[in-house]
Amino acid sequence: MKLELHHIEKRFDDKEVLKDVSFTFEEGHIYGLLGRNGAGKTTLFNCINEDLKIDGGEFFIEDDKGKRKITSEDIGYVLSTPIVPEFLTGREFLKFFIDINRNHMKEEKTIDEYFELMKIEESDRDKLMKDYSHGMKNKMQLLVNIIANPKILLLDEPLTSFDVVVAEEMKGLLKQLKHDHILIFSTHIMELALDLCDEIVILNHGILEEIDRHNLERNELKDKIISALKGEEE
């Protein structure tokens, strides 16, 4: 399965945030989306998730059956600021999510098994989410997106609010997930992108380009990324 973007354009008033974004994301990879502040990473995610209407271009999924439009089951989006319905407890939110996604879940686990997966303490499972910390809400948001088992997972700075131990666990989890998914991971932290991602993609001046990391040492790769982010020619 592939996610193909063709000449995506998006502007806000006079500002052209995405000029001509074309790229093909493939199953089985974690893509690290890097870009400077305000480069349009979140805008790109919002466009793919259809939160924002694009001004030009098209995007679609290509699989065994050919090209098709993205449906809500295909895509999961973990926002940088996690937002969860705060009137529910963690357990109730999961129950609701499982109820409505049961049809396209690969294998259903018990709610407590899901909590275990995210290392959410027993004492927190039946608390209203309005009393959850930022990190806990982030875990819940990541968890429900994993449960729904979408083919494409957009992750906008998802690990920044986790402590180092949880962040390591989450990295492991994402690596397990990548086999039959497309994971696109936006971050400001280059080390994280280099550790976790198979491919590095840079969004600069409204254009998306892949960094070829073939035969490059880590430091050489870093220099190459910095040059690309600064917009310098090779």
Binding site: E50, D51, S72, I75, Y77, L79, I83, P85, F87
Partner: peptide, 15 residues
């Protein structure tokens, strides 16, 4: 504030 604000960020909820 307490419900749709968060849920509308999920695609299935906008179906």
């Amino acid at each position: 504030m307490n419900c749709d604000h968060s849920m509308l960020t999920y695609r299935f909820y906008r179906q």
